[in-house]
Design a protein around this nucleic acid. Structure first.
Lengths: 336, 336
DNA sequence: TTACGAAATGACAACGTTGTCATTTCATTA
DNA sequence: TAATGAAATGACAACGTTGTCATTTCGTAA
């Protein structure tokens, strides 16, 4: 009555039970067509009965690959969900699993640290999600045998990178203001160390300067609504302020609330554009025009780039995923 | 000049280069104290020179374990970020990496499917993040050699589960209303298929019934502000409505906006409580009292439960992580 | 029936580690 | 200096797969 269940059922156990050779079991799994149907059935029955599952370690040792892509999260923010979603879906589709590690809060992790850790894990290639500066960014060289893609707005000298076109998105929003007859655009920045905020600011500056407009001093925020509100109070007192670009929707909302509290109307008195297009989730009948980035697409591209690099020892590439301006009614047309 | 760089550097290569035996190299890595310092240095030098990194597959094949915990995302929502964050941090701390797979949109994945896929991957135990019902929930049995923890508000007959105490959180909010002198509480639900919404509703019902109050019909929402706004318009017309519990903050905000548009004041005329405590990010000077769940803690608990099950072949357990009522000023005290 | 080529199956080595046990080297004491 | 035991090192097998090549079985035609 005592069924002695062995710890791990191996192919050999299955082979013995089915009365065939080890190699035949292997064939049933990897090239079933090369095995006679009657034999196949016996083997399948034995596998079922014993509860066999192929051993990942042995298999990948033999094959020399894992079928896993590493993901290093230097930073895990809200937008990261959709990106991970994209990475995971694309991986699934191409038959890969993900191996994930994360920088701990407070911990200092360089690209080299991440690469070192990853290369001890079951991983054929890797993706770094990097939204802030890191010490060895310029000097880092990826392991030659581990295709590495970095998700970051910065260009890297040797690694492939993928990014939202944050700068382009900001430029687009600015030009939208200008094309609607606005003569100037104020900017509310996100957290200072955030690369996203820096890029958005850069795009804003570039767009204004391209039309010969001197950019006013940007206002410093911290991504949250309260900092936007504070900025809005300041802006409400500037008579030349007709257009405000806020580095995200929460701050944009803060700005709008402050303007309203100061007796100004959006968009009649002041026009506002935000980023991320997420205000509609929280505010009913939201009117905020916003630049939306396709984070999911970003993840998909990153994963595809890694997988491509696995097959062909590809060179460095740079992918930009453009943003989309979601138009609502927070921008007034000053022409005519 | 042509340096022939071998594809993979093995311990044997290092051993030859350092003039020691294979086993000595192994020892330098796994039990450095048992190796004379001079030898150790030679080996380290050789490892450095050749760029040696231990082979994950071979190592885990020999050891019979991977040092990885599997995470299955049946569902990837906003709150999941913090949970993943917790899982990842706790894993890091205990020296584990994560292996992740995700249900694709539209795909049908049962617990058995997930377990089957995972057991072919490098994984010592696994965590399922399950926020909706799944066909084989009741009948599922986890592989005996793979400790399985399910993050879900439902109790499972054989697997350990971890969950926010959603029901308790809703009860807490309700009682808070009642303790402040309210005679009844209306409820705005989230998406119908969401277990979170169902549990929150259950807690709301239970709290009212416990005080002999007949719960009014709940209003159906879809998590977004607009659906909350619609509910708010309806509630504004109910003279007996002094307290509204909305299943999340976005809908709560929608309710508040509708009430305001109907000329009612929060909290003077109607009191409101939400869930998740995230409105303050989007709304400046937010007054919304909200039940906050500690998703990060949830992830940590889940991971710890898995790891504990690895060491001691533990039995089934059920962990509830309590919520916290973040008090602001959206509830009026009707006593006195 | 026999011979033949193709299809199906099997024996054995190899992947790169770690565990077991045997052997060598070293420092210490008589 | 020789004897002793402890410390350091090494030889070899084993983990569970897959690749290579040899062998057996089968169906078909002479």
């Amino acid at each position: 009555m005592a069924t002695m269940d062995k710890k791990n059922v191996s192919m050999n156990d299955v082979a013995v039970a089915a009365g065939v050779s080890l190699k035949t079991v292997s064939r049933v799994i990897n090239e079933p067509d090369s095995v006679r149907e009657s034999t196949r059935d016996k083997v399948h029955a034995a596998m079922e009965a014993l509860g066999f599952r192929t051993n990942f370690a042995a298999r990948s040792l033999k094959l020399g690959r894992y079928g896993c892509i590493g993901v290093v999260l230097f930073h895990l923010s809200g937008g990261a969900v959709d990106m991970i979603d994209g990475i995971a879906d694309a991986a699934e589709e191409r038959g890969f699993a993900l191996t994930m590690i994360k920088k701990r809060a407070g911990e200092k992790m360089t690209l080299a640290d991440a690469a070192r850790r990853m290369s001890q894990l079951p991983v054929d290639g890797m993706i770094f999600n990097l939204r802030q500066m890191v010490d060895d960014f310029e000097t880092f060289e990826a392991p030659k045998d581990l295709k590495t893609v970095i998700i970051t707005p910065m260009e890297h000298p040797t690694c492939s990178t993928v990014s939202d076109d944050q700068e382009g998105g900001a430029r687009m929003a600015c030009e939208y203001f200008l094309d609607h007859g606005h003569k100037n655009v104020y900017f509310v920045a996100g957290k200072e160390e955030s690369l996203s905020s820096q890029c958005r600011m850069k795009g804003w500056r570039a767009a204004l300067e391209a039309r010969g407009i001197e950019p006013p001093d940007p206002l410093q925020g911290d991504w949250n609504a309260d900092s936007g509100y504070a900025a809005g109070l300041v802006l409400a007192d500037k008579p030349d302020c007709t257009a405000v670009l806020a580095a995200n929707d929460c701050m944009a909302n803060g700005v709008m609330m402050a303007l309203r509290d100061k007796g100004l109307s959006v968009p009649d008195d002041v026009s506002v554009i935000g980023f991320d297009d997420e205000l509609y989730k929280t505010i009913p009948n939201s009117i905020l025009t916003s630049v939306k980035f396709r984070h999911r697409e970003l993840g998909i591209r990153a994963l595809n780039e890694v997988v491509a690099g696995l097959e062909a020892p590809s060179s460095r590439s740079r992918t930009l995923v453009s943003g989309v301006l979601v138009e609502r009614s927070s921008v007034r047309d000053l022409r005519a």
